[in-house]
Design a protein around this nucleic acid. Structure first.
Lengths: 150, 150
DNA sequence: ATAACGTCGTCAAGTCACTTTACCCGCGTC
DNA sequence: GACGCGGGTAAAGTGACTTGACGACGTTAT
């Protein structure tokens, strides 16, 4: 432990959000590997991020994840080869494609939710049920106004 | 807006932490660019992350940011060339180096805190002072037990 | 004293997740 | 039927890393 010349000041909301978020992210990846999905990397979590890519067009997913459509397609190509999803033609419009999760893909989504559920349970235990419920509700409000302050 | 066959379930704590964190991260970078620090990229924020690298050894910073020391050194080299910091020999032990922020480096740290302060003020306005204070306190508890559950 | 050892910082090469640029292909419009 | 547009994709280039190796310094054992 080192004390600095100038005090760091109060903890910033940036660090306060970053630290738990990184914990969740690491637990997700470790949990997937532990459940046998050893061929998934951290980058693939971006494609699987809530609520999942099933039924979306690649461009929609790109907009949602704030990546270029090429970057998304690069990851989709890998995950298709690994058997997690398929890119089929949209029957209504031949210009579009639709992402369809395979059974394995759906299992991954469930696995992620299970892992996050574990983390939530641990935190609920540590913070107490009341505090944890309050935290969740505040985060819901925060992330809804952060996403679209309509 | 598309409704899916299977309901997405309640919003996961992962997404709830990720969305606001990404907002903060984007605001930090945009704020630095707006204040004239246009030569900093997203990766440099990892080096500057709370409470900042001043006085640390490269290895300590690597451990803190969970990067390899080579990755940290790569970024430190860039930021040294850009005039944000210097790597000097530790006077007590010639094996070590110490990171010293330059004046410009200290200005960046202050700029980041100012930007995050703006975001905090906005969120406090939207959530109300009481709710925001509660959110911060809960996040402090959460990220302290996430970091080291001693 | 000096030799062995353990880290720290760093150089070099390789890898991976992207970005940039460009193109083709359906569909709707003029 | 030519046109424009937007979506998906292929190819090359870039940046942020990882992996592997190594010399320098200080600490410990001989």
């Amino acid at each position: 432990m080192i004390t600095h010349a100038q005090p760091p000041g109060p903890p910033l909301i940036g660090a306060l959000l970053r630290v738990p978020w990184e914990v969740v992210r690491e637990r997700m990846l470790a949990g997937l590997h532990a459940r046998g999905f050893t061929d998934l990397h951290a980058a693939h979590l971006n494609v699987l991020q809530y609520p999942g890519p099933d039924g979306l067009r690649p461009s929609e997913l790109a907009a949602q994840t704030r990546m270029t459509k090429q970057a998304v397609n690069y990851l989709l190509g890998q995950m298709e080869r690994l058997g997690y999803l398929e890119r089929r033609d949209d029957p209504a419009d031949q210009r579009f494609k639709r992402i369809h999760l395979t059974r394995r893909g759906h299992r991954v989504i469930r696995a992620i939710r299970a892992v996050v559920g574990e983390v939530e349970a641990e935190w609920e235990q540590e913070l107490g049920p009341h505090s944890f419920a309050e935290l969740r509700e505040l985060l819901v409000r925060l992330s809804s106004l952060a996403a679209g302050p309509t």
